[in-house]
Design a protein around this nucleic acid. Structure first.
Length: 561
RNA sequence: AGUCCGAUGGUGUAACGGUAGCACAGGAAAUUUUGGUUUUCCUUGUCCAGGUUCGAAUCCUGGUCGGACUACCA
């Protein structure tokens, strides 16, 4: 039996490299890794890398490692380690038992540094930072050799030992690889591989006062773990020759291959750890998990699902050229997911009274409402109905434009799950603001169908005033008003483009069923958008709702035209 | 300035010498107890100039434009 021929799945360049490596027998099994430095919270750009690396491991039946790249104790904290693990787990990238820390390799890296010294491939240099910069040369001029470049192996061994014991102050000595000061690639001009940092490390405490540099440490970490494909972003392209130099000169048993891909950029947001840290430190947002932040924790709190983020990462693909992804792609991914999965409720965000003049005073009816028309299995709930309701202020207009299907004097609309009502008139205050809308209902249309089959164009949502609850609703919008934050002039501060209206806090009126939801629950407010119960600030029976994303609104578009 | 990398609709991508396809965005319609969803249709593209070839988005040469790099950060 043969399966129906299907179109071949498009394969990006990294999958093709792996295909070839497996076919040639270079590798039997692949091992990938995600190696964040624990100096900040993960963001959607990291999600791209996590999905890529863990996805490749799954696809090729390989292994995925999570590794803290913690070689610089001055910037790293245990708080970040914990948040990173939580976020990677939330995205359901499974590392199983393969959790590692670069700092656990410090002994081995140090031994390999001694190996390099013995080979005459590394030396201790006493040049100051400034002197070293001057001797480095530039794009067009070769660098100058360090005065200690040709000292004996014995001297270097002793000097490195002194460094390691803490006999030098910070900045007084470094260990450098001995390669070529005239190399066209600056990263090959005797790069520093160990520096002195007399700082406590969150994992190794005060055991060390010398710490390996990224360019030296990273290839070794990969090699120690047997990583086959070490995937990083484009800015490391020029580091690759040194990566290979380390692997080949130390001659590690396994020889990982570095592959670079383009990092993610999204319109109307910043995606650099430094800028995100500044937003937090300058209190421009309320922490790393502020729902406006593009961090994983921010998106989670905003109501994004892991599946929607994974879908987004799949959609944007993997290439080597820099691009700017429209945030609409992200929003589409979450709408698409939430549309299928979230139960519907009625909530009125900008209430105005609707009084049904011919409805009995004091009567309360219990109506049945479907939870999700997309999913009959989601069942139904009940909503109370009475003479005085609250509806959206937008759903009434005294003088209606063409094709307005909502309430306007003389027009009939359907109250969702309720009755047909016909608008009669409105009441205004002294200033001319509408304070209440009046209507009459047709008792024969209970549930929203009319026996005579007459068609109603507009259906609006509502809550019964007496039974409605007052809740806090947070309406989030994009954090920046500028589309491409990478495109600013040198003297232009990205902060000036912050959107002053990125957060609006309002009080809404909601149906009773909305009060008992657990924090983190995602729902749709019918005709409005997707919301979730805030996981931090909600209290029992006092939920706070975060707007994840609004529904598409083609009427709003039409009205603009 | 040098080296390296890249260039496909408005945006993100696919096509690996043989019909430029998909998704988003935008537009039109049908369906709809959400102006949502769903369905159908439409608009819009191979950076430029040469070359190789029966045939080029794809290979070659030259240009143009964009990005990365000048840390004892990662």
């Amino acid at each position: 039996m043969s399966t129906e021929p299907t179109a071949p799945q498009p394969r990006h360049f990294i999958q093709q490299i792996i295909d070839a490596d497996l076919a040639s027998g270079k590798h039997k099994k692949i091992i990938t890794r995600f190696p964040p430095e624990p100096n900040g919270y993960l963001h959607i750009g990291h999600a791209k890398s996590i999905c890529l690396n863990s996805g490749l491991a799954t696809e090729f039946n390989g292994q995925f490692n999570l590794r803290m790249d913690d070689t610089n104790p001055t910037k790293e904290e245990i708080e970040y380690v914990d948040s990173i693990k939580e976020d990677v787990r939330w995205l359901s990238a499974e590392w199983n038992e393969h959790y590692y820390q670069a700092s656990d390799y410090f002994d081995r890296m140090h031994a390999d540094a001694i190996k390099l010294i013995k080979m005459g491939k590394a030396f201790v240099c006493y040049l100051s930072l400034e002197e070293m910069r001057l001797q480095k040369g530039d794009f067009t001029t070769p660098g100058k050799d360090s005065p200690t470049r040709n000292t004996s192996v014995e001297e270097n061994l002793a000097a490195f030992e002194k460094m390691t014991r803490g006999e030098f102050d910070e900045g007084k000595a470094v260990l450098r690889a001995k390669i070529d000061m005239a190399a066209t690639n600056e990263y090959m001009r005797d790069p520093v591989i160990y520096r002195i940092r007399k700082v406590e490390h969150h994992n190794t405490g005060n055991k060390w006062c010398v710490y390996p540099m990224y360019d030296y440490a990273h290839p070794l970490e990969d090699a120690y773990e047997g990583i086959t494909h070490s995937i990083c972003t484009l800015e490391f392209e020029k580091h690759r020759p040194f990566y290979d130099w380390v692997v080949n000169t130390v001659n590690t048993p396994s020889k990982p291959q570095q592959i670079e891909f383009a990092r993610l950029n999204i319109t109307y947001t910043v995606l650099s750890k430094r800028k995100l840290l500044e937003l937090v430190q300058e209190n421009r947002v309320n922490g790393w998990d502020d729902p406006r932040m593009p961090t994983i924790s921010g998106l989670r709190r905003r109501g994004y699902t892991p599946a929607s983020i994974r879908k987004f990462c799949e959609t944007i693909g993997i290439t080597k050229h820099n691009s700017l992804t429209d945030v609409a792609l992200l929003e589409h991914a979450v709408r698409d997911d939430l549309n299928k999965t979230s139960p519907r409720f009625m909530a009125v965000l900008d209430p105005i009274k609707l009084i049904i003049d011919n409805y009995p005073e004091g009567e309360v009816e219990i109506l049945e409402a479907q939870n999700n028309p997309e999913d009959p299995a989601a069942g139904s709930r009940t909503v109370p109905f009475s003479k005085t309701l609250l509806i959206e202020r937008d759903d009434f207009i005294e003088v209606a434009p063409k094709k307005y299907f909502r309430l306007t004097p003389g027009q009939e609309v359907r109250l969702r799950w309720g009755y047909y009502v016909k608008c009669t008139h409105c009441v205004k205050d002294a200033a001319g603001n509408v304070t209440a809308v009046h209507c009459t209902y047709d008792p024969a249309t209970k549930g929203g169908d009319s026996p005579d089959g007459r068609k109603i164009k507009g259906t609006i949502h509502w809550v019964s005033e007496a039974q409605a609850s007052d809740v806090e609703v947070r309406l989030y919008d994009r954090l920046f008003t500028h589309e491409n934050l990478n495109d600013l002039g040198d003297d232009e501060d990205w902060r000036t483009h912050l959107n002053p209206e990125s957060l609006k806090v309002i009080r809404g009126k909601v149906e009773p069923a909305l009060l008992t939801l657990k924090p983190g629950t995602r729902v749709q407010f019918e005709r409005t958008g997707y919301f979730c119960v805030d996981i931090k600030d909600s209290q029992p029976s006092r939920p706070v709702f975060n707007r994840t994303v609004s529904l598409k609104d083609s009427w709003a578009k039409q009205i603009v035209k």
